[in-house]
Simulated assay, not measured.
Amino acid sequence: MDAELNDALAELRDLLLDGERLVSASAGGRRKGQEAPEPTRIRPVTVKGRELLQLETADAAGRPIVRNVEATAVEELLARPYANWHVVTTDATVAVRITKKGKAFVHRTAEGGERVTSHDRVKSHLLAPDDPLFAAVGADAAKRRQVDRFLTLVDGKLGTDGAPLHVVDFGCGNAYLTFAAYKYLSGVRELDVTVTGVEIREEQRVHNNAVAEKLGYAAGMHFVADTAAEADLPGADIVLALHACDTATDEAIARGVRLKAAHIFAAPCCHHDIAEQLKGAEAPGPYGALVADGILRERFADTLTDALRALLLRSLGYEVEVSEFIASQHTPRNSMIWARPARTPAALRTAARVEYDTLVEQWGVRPKLAELLETA
């Protein structure tokens, strides 16, 4: 193991075991050639007088799993092939990034956090709740929760080679997630990042550019008034489509495919297109009850639309995951589709296409994404 990596892990060990200074920590990403470990958040807790570490991970649906462990668990955590560590103490913040060549880069600042060790659960945040950007974009507590979950999802998927990144957010609206992505990737992860926000409303473009200027982000962020299909873009490494309405999500995904983006993150909003098609389609077999009533048809359309999107991307060779974005009590539109190009075996691509063709034939629907990808 590289001496710099040994030194970085030793520093992390000391920080995680510092019972007086540790505030919180998070670990995510994976090193090249290694299986991705589950993203983990860590904070010290006191339970019945015992000093423990609280570990927070998530299940396959994105629901949090919390357990309290002895400090000896630190050795097992450090042995996992995480690519990124972020540790906050009472007087400092330390970020460690491990490259695909196994080199460790350590960044230290003198900004710490407030230590809370009561067993009452207090979540750590990848961006502090009092960060100025939240006030600038008018983000309330619910939006801050979405930001934290979104950044956790993104952080767990990105590589560590340090290459410049161009992030494009289609249908960015007031761009609170766009600003958060820029702040985290450029400020915390210290990546060379530029961000383009695409929003069809001209007044929103003007407003968002003004906010970027106010926050001091104008050098790395700019906003344009256009559609996902027509925006003039040189390329994209990461494509975002967060709460884009109906087929706007399909337009963003299709544009991400055309741009050969390394990552696509789409959190769909409404699914009117398929829901309307289901009204005039004859349900197959004994499944008429799924679409007979409006509320059931709407919910089924959500599931069917996202399942067909995932199958189409898999048929193109993409690795795809569909998970919970934010808990359903905060919004009923709570799924996140993540996709990246992969070396998928031909047999798996074919199987995905067969399953897709079967579903659209049985339900008599024509997804917008299929139309868009045919012209991509």
Rank of each mutant, 00 (worst) to 15 (best):
residue 158 L to S: 08
residue 162 G to E: 03
residue 173 G to S: 07
residue 260 K to C: 07
residue 169 D to Q: 02
residue 187 G to C: 02
residue 239 V to F: 09
residue 222 H to Y: 10
residue 229 A to L: 08
residue 210 A to W: 06
residue 148 D to I: 07
residue 208 N to T: 12
residue 167 V to D: 08
residue 166 H to V: 10
residue 150 F to G: 04
residue 178 T to R: 12
residue 268 P to H: 13
residue 171 G to T: 11
residue 257 V to R: 02
residue 186 S to K: 13
residue 251 E to G: 05
residue 265 F to L: 15
residue 243 H to A: 11
residue 177 L to S: 12
residue 238 I to P: 04
residue 186 S to I: 03
residue 222 H to V: 06
residue 149 R to G: 07
residue 191 L to T: 09
residue 150 F to C: 06
residue 234 P to Y: 05
residue 198 V to G: 05
residue 181 A to M: 15
residue 189 R to M: 12
residue 195 V to S: 03
residue 168 V to G: 14
residue 231 A to Q: 03
residue 208 N to M: 05
residue 196 T to K: 02
residue 181 A to E: 00
residue 201 R to H: 08
residue 226 D to A: 15
residue 224 V to N: 07
residue 228 A to W: 03
residue 166 H to G: 03
residue 160 T to Y: 11
residue 178 T to Y: 12
residue 153 L to A: 15
residue 223 F to L: 05
residue 178 T to K: 08
residue 236 A to H: 05
residue 158 L to K: 01
residue 265 F to H: 10
residue 254 A to H: 13
residue 261 A to T: 08
residue 148 D to M: 08
residue 190 E to T: 11
residue 246 D to W: 00
residue 165 L to P: 06
residue 171 G to S: 14
residue 244 A to C: 11
residue 238 I to V: 14
residue 170 F to L: 12
residue 204 Q to K: 06
residue 175 A to V: 03
residue 239 V to I: 14
residue 194 T to G: 11
residue 235 G to H: 08
residue 218 A to N: 08
residue 194 T to E: 14
residue 230 E to P: 01
residue 185 L to F: 14
residue 266 A to C: 13
residue 177 L to F: 12
residue 219 A to F: 04
residue 246 D to H: 07
residue 175 A to G: 10
residue 166 H to T: 13
residue 216 G to L: 01
residue 212 A to W: 05
residue 151 L to D: 07
residue 162 G to P: 04
residue 246 D to T: 09
residue 146 Q to N: 02
residue 247 T to Q: 03
residue 196 T to Y: 11
residue 200 I to R: 14
residue 198 V to C: 04
residue 201 R to I: 02
residue 211 V to D: 11
residue 248 A to K: 07
residue 241 A to Q: 08
residue 221 M to H: 06
residue 228 A to R: 02
residue 157 K to L: 14
residue 234 P to R: 10
residue 235 G to P: 03
residue 235 G to Q: 10
residue 186 S to M: 04
residue 229 A to H: 06
residue 173 G to E: 10
residue 248 A to N: 10
